[in-house]
């Protein structure tokens, strides 16, 4: 067993040279620099005409193929309830429900979602006609700043359907049996939705209440 000796690393030698003195560091590769000059890099990708079905309505859109589903919802359809917390699939604030399943809308392209049934937080309920999960979040104060909340609620709604459908989780003790409807399961399954305000304990109360009402 050996441990790397950093002093032998080529990189470290370079840094040592820079110590005290000032060196120029080119941080781009030649390949990248060259690619800038290629004409294809400065032409726009052709826009694509798609039909998005969101909250029961159809929307014809010409989109840049680079546009994520999240950006299409927010910037084109003005459904701004889905939030861009990280744009990297690391926070869950952009969770929407596609064909009954929760996904992070920041890691899929709008062009890939044609033909699917998309439900956003706006499709679950409105301030005057709340979905039971929305009402439970209010009752149990399952949020603070509110930014992760639409994602939490979309996730929670679809999560309960997953449990009902028998999808197991990391904490399901016996894989050969249907998973249980309990808070240990819900905590694990909701872990893809980060709440930095730390409303977790209350969110679990809200979900438990919805389950209780359903049962």
């Amino acid at each position: 067993m050996t441990t790397f000796d950093p002093s032998r690393r080529k990189f470290i030698q370079t840094t040592a040279v820079s110590s005290g003195a000032v060196i120029a560091a080119r941080l781009t590769t030649e390949a990248e620099a060259k690619s800038v000059l290629q004409p294809k890099q400065v032409t726009e990708p052709a826009k694509i005409n798609i039909l998005l079905r969101v909250n029961g309505s159809e929307h014809q859109l010409m989109v840049d193929p680079r546009m994520t589903l999240l950006d299409a919802l927010r910037e084109r359809l003005h459904l701004t309830g889905s939030k861009k917390g990280c744009d990297q699939g690391q926070c869950g604030a952009c969770t929407v429900i596609v064909d009954g399943r929760r996904i992070v809308s920041c890691l899929t392209l709008a062009v890939m979602q044609e033909g699917h049934e998309i439900t956003t937080i706006e499709g679950l309920g409105t301030p005057t006609n709340l979905h039971p999960m929305q009402a439970a979040f209010i009752k149990h104060d399952g949020y603070q700043c509110g930014f992760c909340t639409p994602g939490q609620i979309c996730s929670a709604v679809a999560m309960l359907d997953e449990v009902k459908a028998g999808v197991p989780s990391h904490v399901t003790a016996d894989l050969t049996r249907p998973p249980e409807m309990n808070t240990v399961e819900f905590r694990e399954r909701m872990s893809g939705n980060i709440c930095r305000c730390g409303a977790y304990s209350n969110i679990q109360e809200a979900i438990a209440e919805v389950v209780g009402e359903r049962a």
């Binding site: 701004t80 956003t120 409105t126 709340l130 104060d141 509110g146 909340t149 639409p150």
Partner: peptide
């Protein structure tokens, strides 16, 4: 009391800075 801004926050209609297309 439950938060008076709860119905907006839970329905995605509370306007945060980057949401203000309007």
């Amino acid at each position: 009391a439950s938060r008076i801004d709860g119905p907006l926050k839970t329905t995605g209609t509370a306007p945060y800075a980057y949401d203000r297309y309007d």
